[in-house]
Design a protein around this nucleic acid. Structure first.
Lengths: 212, 212
DNA sequence: TGACTTAGGAAATGATCGTTCTCTATGTTG
DNA sequence: CAACATAGAGAACGATCATTTCCTAAGTCA
């Protein structure tokens, strides 16, 4: 709301109502967003219909639109939630890794596990969005690009740590290694849509040879 | 049409009309199928609407359905065409490679090039189908699984050739190596939806360290 | 308490989805 | 030439799509 001229201060204040006004939500936003995530993971953006989102969340179309403006808004919230959650989980896993090489190994394991079983069949929301990248609008396209860039940056950080702690040889081209690992991780999730990856330890061991 | 009892031979023949009967098609099937491929590559199965397929092929909905029964039929033809074409192209490339290791290297290059530029942005039909795997019916799911299995088998063949010609060390676990390469190749296509891969030679060189 | 503001729920909206139908055109076969 | 069979074109079909609207419910605030 735009106020062109107001005589008294309280009129201006009242034109920006506090967020506590009106009937409060009967559901928890975080919970609802979490429930939309599997829908987008399984069906992608185009395939995730409002009807499916309704049944997944238990909300009516009206409430969904009041809370998220439109389908794009639901997707954006789901995407943010998914990426944040995964990063938290990975960060927790990385605590027990002491060297850069171990952190890379742990990241590989993290993705291999996500590519297995029910989780693997459900798929990766980032990968699913990647496939529909040309369909998404500019802002979402950039969000996706940023997400991938951040993942790449995280790999580069781990590689540099490896250089410092001596677990990775000094001559290794860092950027190219990160690119290769990034592709490999996404590839795990892609193949995991159909089949479980084989022996995780064996695959990790072989992957790490890239760093030799 | 099933004929239970027919007195004369020509009646049986006429009950199975020759394919030359009726008005002939005004378009070339192969050409039309080729034109549907980019639609599925860009939008996936769900996103490829009949309307988009109409404009891509220049056909009307009626002709499309007469030729392919339904949307699923169009997709199946496109998928078959795409896989066949890609395998032919790769096979031609592999002719100039003399050892197993060189054939692996050439395969990596083939995928890196496909992941670059316009081709990369258009995406891989196999990968796109992989993402929608849970949505596809049983038969298509199996076709997809077969395609991946055949690609894996091709990698195993190259690796075995490498064992024979001495370009790959004898102790290398073949199956696990093939799994890793398969994921890496799909990963190239995934990331290629957004960005061009970097220095191909560098990436190939690093990838081949998996085989050391 | 009464004015205000937002949420919930369900029906309604127009667009688009995949598919079918109808009619005409164009070939082959006897 | 007549009978037959399929193709082409486009309108029409019901289903589903994302979104909006309308009304009631449930809070806050003065």
């Amino acid at each position: 709301m735009i106020v062109l001229y107001v005589g008294f201060m309280n009129n201006i204040v009242s034109s920006f109502p506090s967020p506590a006004m009106g009937r409060p939500r009967a559901f928890d936003m975080e919970t609802v967003i979490a429930r939309t995530v599997p829908v987008f993971r399984e069906y992608g953006y185009a395939g995730a219909s409002i009807d499916r989102l309704k049944t997944a969340t238990g909300l009516t179309a009206g409430s969904l639109y009041k809370a998220f403006t439109d389908k794009r808004g639901v997707f954006e919230a789901a995407f943010t939630h998914y990426v944040k959650q995964r990063r938290q989980d990975l960060a927790a896993r990385l605590l027990k890794a002491s060297t850069g090489r171990e952190r890379i190994a742990e990241s590989l394991r993290f993705y291999l596990e996500a590519a297995s079983g029910f989780e693997g069949r459900q798929g990766c929301l980032v990968l699913a969005s990647l496939i529909e990248a040309t369909t998404l609008d500019g802002a979402l396209h950039e969000r996706l690009s940023d997400t991938l860039a951040t993942n790449r940056a995280a790999l580069i950080t781990m590689l540099r740590e490896g250089l410092q702690d001596g677990s990775i040889r000094a001559e290794l081209p860092i950027e190219a290694s990160a690119d290769l690992l990034l592709s490999l991780l996404q590839g795990f999730r892609a193949v995991g849509k159909l089949h479980d990856p084989g022996d995780h330890d064996a695959l990790i061991g072989m992957s790490l040879k890239i760093l030799d």
